[in-house]
Every structure is written in C-alpha cells, then in structure tokens.
Design a protein around this nucleic acid. Sequence first.
DNA 1: TTGAAAGCGCTAACAA
DNA 2: TTGTTAGCGCTTTCAA
Lengths: 337, 337
Amino acid sequence: MKPSRKPPTMADIARIAGVSPMTVSRAFRSDSLIRSETRQAILGAAEELGYVFDSTASNLRSQRTGFVAVTIPSINNANFADTVGGLSEVLEGAGMQTLLGYTNYDVHKEEQLIEQLLQRKPQAIVVTGGKHTPRARKLLENAHIPVIETWDRPAEPIGYYVGFSNAGAVRGMVDHFVAVGYRRIAFLGGDASRDTRGSDRRHGFVEAMKYHGLDPSRLIAAGTPPISMREGANAMAALLKQMPDTEAVICVSDLSAFGALAECLRRGVAVPERMAIGGFGNYEIGDICVPTLTTIDARARLIGEKAGILILSILAGTGEPGSITIAPELLVRESTR
Amino acid sequence: MKPSRKPPTMADIARIAGVSPMTVSRAFRSDSLIRSETRQAILGAAEELGYVFDSTASNLRSQRTGFVAVTIPSINNANFADTVGGLSEVLEGAGMQTLLGYTNYDVHKEEQLIEQLLQRKPQAIVVTGGKHTPRARKLLENAHIPVIETWDRPAEPIGYYVGFSNAGAVRGMVDHFVAVGYRRIAFLGGDASRDTRGSDRRHGFVEAMKYHGLDPSRLIAAGTPPISMREGANAMAALLKQMPDTEAVICVSDLSAFGALAECLRRGVAVPERMAIGGFGNYEIGDICVPTLTTIDARARLIGEKAGILILSILAGTGEPGSITIAPELLVRESTR
DNA sequence: TTGAAAGCGCTAACAA
DNA sequence: TTGTTAGCGCTTTCAA
C-alpha cells in the first residue's frame, strides 16, 4: 500500500490521476485555470498518497522562494518582536514567509548572517539599523532584491528605509524634560561601540543638552548590549552614587528604565519627586509598573507593517514605493513631572 | 565588466578558473579534498564575479536544506525566545538554521503552519507543546524527520520530547504555599480552550488543592492568551473584588504575576503580607521588581539547547538519543512568605 | 585530486 | 483546458 521508500512526487500523482505532471502542478496553484473535476481527482490522489509539496524544487525552478529575510539584534526584545510580528502578518497575506536571523548587536555577526540569508535567495531583505560593515553593504547592494533598513533613518540608505531618527526622538524627550523644569539630566545607555541605535540616542541627548545650555556629561555606561533591567538597576545605583544631585534620567530603553525605577524603589528614592525617569520603546511594562513610565513610542509594529507593505508593492511593481519616516510619539506618564 | 543580466553560477566560475563545475562545488565545501591552489583560484574567481552560493539548487540536489523548523506560540514571549535562542545556538554550531513560525496559541494555526514548514523540507521539526490537531499529528508522523515536542511531556509523544509536566510544576508550588501556611489560594490563568500549557497548570493547581483538602474553586479567568501584564492586573482587580479574603494567588506566568503585583501596589494591598503572589517562567522582571516574584524556572533556554543536541545526535545517527525530562525549579523570593 | 554524466522535483514556455 | 519539452544550479556517483 504505502511506498515506504521514497516520498511521492507530482509524477506519482499524475500517474494515478491519469494526467500529466504539469496538470498536477496546476492543481496546486489556486489561481490556475483547470477543470474543477480534474483538480478534485488530483487532490484526492495526493491525499491518498500523503503527498507533501516540495518547495525546494519549486524554488529552484521558479526562482521564487517566498522568503523575506529579516535580521534583528535579538529575538528576546519585545520591540523587534513586534516589528517582526507586523511584518510577518502583512507578508503572510501574500503567502510569503519571514526567514529570521539574530545579529546579537554585532555588525560582524550581521555581515555573516546576511551572507547566509542571501544564499537562501530571499525575495527581499529587511535589516535592523542603518550601520553595516562595508562588506555587508556590498552584499546587500549586489543582491538585486529590495533592501529595507529599519529602526533608523540612514544618511545613505542602501535601498529603502522605514524608520526614524533615534537622536531626534531623544532630543524631543530632552526638550520636554527641560520644558517642565528639569536641569540636571543624565543619560543611561550601553557602551557606544555595540548598539548603534543606543549610541544615536546618546548623541541626541548630548546635542539637545548643549542646545539648552545644560551639562551634557552625565552619561552612565550600563555595559554591553543588550541593556536590560539588571543593567538599568546597576546603572541607577552607580548614578545615585556618582552624581547624587541628578534630577532626571533618560534611559536607552524601557527595560533599563524599569530596572532603574526598581532600584529607586528599593532605596526609597521617590519617583518622580526626587528622580524622574524616561524610557524608550513603549514596552508593555512601562504602562503597568508603578509609577508608569514616560517613554517614546517608536511604533515598532507599524515599522514592520509598513516594511511589509513596501516590500509587497515593490515586488508587485505597482505604485511609486518610497522610504517611510515614522514619527515616534512622546508618552508622558507618571515617572516624570 | 559586470554581467548585469544573470547572477553568476558555479559554471561561470569554472570557466574563469579553468576547472570543472564539480571542482568549484568542492572548493566551497570545507571538508572536501582539493588542492589548495585550485581552491584559491576558484575562490578568487568567485570573489571577482560577486558570486553568491545558491542554496536552493543545493537543497534540491542534495536533499538537505540545513533547516530545522520550529513552531512557537508567540515571538513576543521571553520564555519561547530563550528556547529558540538556545536551540539556534546549538544548531548554528552544526551549520544549520532555524526556520521559525508562530501559532498564536491556536492549534489550527499550528496545523497550517506545520504544513507550510514541512513543504520547505526541514531536516527536523520542533513544536511547542504536546497537543495538536489529528491532522497536524499525522503530518508530523508522516514527515519522516525527527519530531521534538517541547514545553510539555506528552502522554503519547509523536517522536521525542524535551519538556516537563506543567501540572506537576504547579503542584509543587501549591505544596510549597500550603507548607508555609497559605490556605485560601487562587489560580489566575487564561481561558482553558486556547493555551494548553496554561490549562495544564490550572489542572495541576486544582489537583494539588484537592489533595490538601483545600478549596480549588478560586479560579480567575484572565481572558484569551497571550495572558500578559494587563490581563494579570485586571484579573487581580477582579479577584480582590470577588474573593477579597484570598491569601495567595498563583499566576500562569510571571508577566501576569507582575500585572497582579502592580495592581496590588496601586491599591495599597501589601505583597506578600496581605496577598502572596507566585508566577511561572522566571522572566527577568520577576528578579528585578519590588518585591521580587516567587516563580518556577522552567529552564527555557536549556529546553532549546537539549532539543538542539538531541536533533544533532539523531541526524548524526550517533549514540542512543531519547526524550529528555527537564526538572523545573521553584524559586522562592519576596512575593511570598 | 579532478572530471563527466545524470538528475533532484518542479514549472516556464510553448504548443495543441 | 491540458500536454510536451527543457532546464533551474547544484551535487551524487562513478570513472580517470
């Protein structure tokens, strides 16, 4: 009964159904023109054989894989997860899948990853950030597929981008802090070399502080990315020790902001009365914790959705696709005045 | 100079380097026997042409894709992200990649996803949980590749499993709660129909309460999975209203536990004095928040690593691979007596 | 250490 | 609406 050796192919189905392999192929494509009874017979035979469509053969012959490759710094980050979620959902509607890879906040790992992903012949590639090794840039330029940079607004985009200015977003938060009366403001972020978005945010902080004639030197290095809650807590401890007269702190993410907040709670430092805290990313935690966190909503999911829509329109060749600038939104909540 | 039409193939390289395509193929395999100078010439020619290896052709001919397919309920969950992280790292060491898909906590979506993933001819598949539709089960059984179920210990495994008893883990927490003197204990979880692991945890709660001769009916339904912080906060509000004499609550995850904790803080309900809280999953937040959360560490990353090692040993045909039971660990912290 | 021949399973292109 | 032919780019297999 069951041919236990080799899995059945379209040729096997064709034999049973009494048609040509090409007709079998057509029966599996929803759009194709084929007599309904023929299709039924073919699908019946396929079911009987336990046939599984072989996309590796289809991919090679048609030169379409149905993949969109995506690189993100870490899978374990709700912001990037949201972007991937939005992207996947849009692409799924067009029958495409995302092929994900993690760079661990390292441009060299990113380069290696991009090379691997391109070998799988994705029909488009989405990368996080606008800073890459020269070789990675070259690989992307030569790939002859749509390239979308996200979470940034590169000075010289490789192809398209869907993002925002990280520096600009933080400048906006500094402006708000200054407007409500804070003067001795610190920035809590990771070491400059790794997380390029984090270091863009720090630059935005420094620029804005200078613009307002304030001291931009209250910078607390929280360690190597990923900067998460523990790093935020440790950095707050350091800040309270080294610059105890600080009135407010802007953190590179809501996760580190929450860690900083927790450290304040443990030490009886009142937030926001004695120390105001701002975060970045509008993670769920910032809207639940006590007090809730002032933050910047970078519209993570929207970035993914827009990237997906952009890709589909490029591949379809319809419309006039262009890069998209997302406007981050300042959310003022309880952790600041 | 640049052949702007078609991307270069191994045949193009072979022509330039003056060798056969087969030799070019060998030059790209690290293990193959080839004269060092020949390889240098070939790699030089490849570099010059901007050659990118085409894995779609390789996949078809060799019948090996280098993929391991993985289904997880949600990308936006640190526990599953950790499992995928551990798995990916192990597989990467063997030059394999993970192909990820999200089921959104829905067995029908899972079935559809499994079908799609199998078409890509993964060399193994890892699924989260041990409950599937009959058709999904059949697809996995017929796939003739290693199947690993995780985060559960199925009564009838499809192939192998790397997991633990969700019910048993929660029973252990109930035992501890009872031992330290709590009697009126509630369980906060999602609707039974969707999240099968969550409902296993609830069963474990009910069984253990009955075993101790306590009332097992303090069950708060927190809505449809994913159950996160907001749902936890709302459910705590409902609990305080409906069963105000409750002494302790066990939450289906640390995220809902944190939401519940935050709601208590807002209302001035002292934790743990007036309300003890237990979580599940040992998320980072539980070790940072104030008070820290008593939880169960399901060893998420370890599950992924073990699954990866198991897959590699099955594919290599070495050793005597078998299913693996992980022992979850109770972490008693500040949110309970 | 290298080469020649064949073909993985599907589908583009064209024909009927 | 269906069939025929050829071939996607690589690697298995066998031979030299």
